[in-house]
C-alpha cells in the first residue's frame, strides 16, 4: 500500500475542535431575528412599501404616527426589530457567500464586514429611532 491513498481529511481532526460559542451565539441571534422578521416584516413591507405609497390604503396621518413613534416602548421594540433583523441578515448572508459563491477562504474578512455592517446599522437605527 505504501500510503498510496490518504484519507480526504486526517483522522481525528474533528475531535480536536472545540465547541464554538461564537457560532452558537450567531445562530441564536439569526434564529431570533428570523422569527421576529417572519412575523412582522411581510405586513410592514406590504403596507409601507406598496399599499401606502400607491394610495391603495390611506397612510397613517403624520401627527398620530409621529406620536406613536416617540412612545418609549415602541422605540425600544422597533430598535429590537431592526437589530435582530440585521443580525439575521448577517448570519444568513455570510453563509450564502461561503457556500453559494464558494468564498470559504475569505471567511474572516466576510465575517468582519457583515457584523461591522450590523453594528453600523444598529447605531443608525438607535440614532433615528431615539432622535
Amino acid at each position: 500500500m505504501a500510503g498510496a491513498r490518504k484519507p480526504a481529511e486526517p483522522a481525528g481532526r474533528v475531535s480536536t475542535a472545540k465547541p464554538s460559542r461564537v457560532e452558537a451565539a450567531a445562530w441564536l441571534m439569526f434564529s431570533a431575528g428570523g422569527m421576529v422578521t417572519a412575523l412582522l416584516v411581510p405586513v410592514l413591507m406590504l403596507l409601507f412599501g406598496v399599499l401606502f405609497p400607491l394610495g391603495v390604503l390611506t397612510p397613517p396621518d403624520h401627527a398620530g404616527f409621529a406620536a406613536l413613534l416617540s412612545h418609549q416602548l415602541v422605540r425600544i421594540l422597533l430598535l429590537g426589530l431592526c437589530v435582530l433583523a440585521l443580525l439575521h441578515w448577517a448570519h444568513r448572508f455570510r453563509y450564502t457567500l461561503f457556500d453559494g459563491l464558494q468564498l470559504d477562504r475569505t471567511r474572516t474578512a466576510i465575517n468582519v464586514l457583515c457584523y461591522a455592517a450590523v453594528l453600523a446599522g444598529s447605531v443608525w437605527a438607535a440614532v433615528v429611532l431615539f432622535a
Binding site: T37, V41, M45, C82, W89, F93, Y95, T96, G121
Partner: peptide, 14 residues
C-alpha cells in the same frame, strides 16, 4: 437564503 438581503433592505427603507 437571499431573502436575508430583502430583510436588510426593509431595515433601510423603514
Amino acid at each position: 437564503e437571499l431573502s436575508s438581503v430583502a430583510v436588510a433592505w426593509f431595515v433601510v427603507h423603514f
